[in-house]
Amino acid sequence: MDKAFYNSNFKLGILGGGQLGRMFIQEAINYNASVHILDPSELAPCKDIATSFTQGDLMDYSTVVSFGQNLDLLTIEIEHVNVDALETLEKEGVEVYPQPHILRMIQDKGTQKEFYKEHSIPTAPFILSDSFDYNIELPVVQKLRKGGYDGKGVQILRDKKDVTHGFHEPSVFEDLIDFEKELSVIVARNTKGEVKTFPVVELEFNPEANLVEYLFSPAAISQEVEQKAQDLATQVAESTKVVGLLAVEMFLTKDGEVMVNEIAPRPHNSGHQTIEGNITSQFEQYLRAITGMPLGDTSIIAPSVMVNLLGEKDHTGEAFVEGLEEVMAISGATVHLYGKWKTKPYRKMGHVTVVDKELESAKEKAKKIKDTLKIKTR
């Protein structure tokens, strides 16, 4: 890298201006980093805190190329971007992380699963199909190969009546795993090949929205499982040779084995607690990784619980935060609102992290927060 990333003439760009980019900028400011954003929405959460903001389509080839040509380094906060444009920019000398070929693989869940198989990375048995397979053995998890995110494009087919709702686009059909817990490991790999994992976290999902509702750090697992999960995340990072972060979502099976469910090549909802709960946050680690700096200490400072703040079910319109004052009075609670002025059912509007000396105490506070802080409309 010819110029230091903390100099004013170094331009770091992000495709996507949502909450992940917003939290990245909040950390990058500590290093005087100049961050430029491209996002399709004029109301993007990053708009007012970025060094510069460009409104444009992330899937449009010419828009992405035009945005990236004057940058020194380009990264992403969402996978759904034009990879052809990133490959062009890379050939023109712009550093692009994560690398375009990794994004191309991750954009297609079928290619992603085949990558795991090729590299002996444990994952649920699967088959690929270009249309709905009526002969598929039930129960099964059907995932669209492309376009799915935040629980969309994924459904469990348990019996024949569910089959009528099956997707008819190219899909992955996975065995339904009878898992004990859902886990996640954030792993970083920098430009020099240094790899570090964060401690394993445990996820609890909202059954209606299929989104993370609570995150617990550290996960309630044995040291043996902790090591297996961190080793597996390291294996994925080394196999892909990614530069940046990977969120490696895993299943812990009833017999104590861990297997990869999916990966995301960026900061992730399952790492938000690191801002308050760990020595280095996932966002600072991402900056360190893509700029070739030494990776930071990932140790836990204190047990923590993250609560996702989702838009209330029957509320669409200008957002009103109910119960904020009560939550701000809770010791150890830190509120993060994402700069989204409009709410809708189950939209990610923010999160709260609770740190405490004991995880059970943090869980009790998190439950109170969940019951108190509501994102509504007036």
Rank of each mutant, 00 (worst) to 15 (best):
A247P: 02
D231V: 08
Y214E: 02
K109N: 09
V64E: 06
I127R: 14
L246R: 04
L43Q: 15
H272F: 08
T377R: 05
T197E: 10
V355Q: 07
V185T: 08
R145S: 01
Y134V: 06
P218W: 04
H119G: 01
E27C: 00
M306G: 05
P170R: 05
S270D: 08
N210F: 15
I177Q: 02
V83A: 08
K143D: 10
F167Y: 15
T111V: 14
F283V: 03
D159A: 09
L211H: 00
L245T: 09
L183S: 09
F126I: 03
T197F: 04
L73C: 12
D314A: 12
V81K: 00
R378Y: 12
M59W: 00
L176E: 04
S131A: 14
K313C: 01
T51I: 04
G147F: 11
S299H: 14
K146C: 07
G323I: 11
D159E: 15
V154P: 05
T253P: 07
K192I: 01
A233Y: 11
L176C: 07
L310A: 12
T234N: 12
S171V: 11
T253I: 03
E238D: 14
F320Y: 13
V81C: 06
S304L: 07
E262D: 13
L310I: 05
R145Y: 03
L15F: 05
F132H: 09
D48I: 04
S304D: 04
M1S: 15
F205I: 06
A264F: 02
T234H: 07
A219D: 03
S120D: 15
L128N: 00
I49E: 03
L138G: 04
D57L: 03
S131M: 06
I78G: 00
Y346V: 02
M59P: 00
K192W: 08
I106P: 01
D130Y: 04
N82Q: 12
E92D: 15
A319W: 02
I263R: 03
G153F: 01
Y286E: 02
P218F: 12
A237D: 00
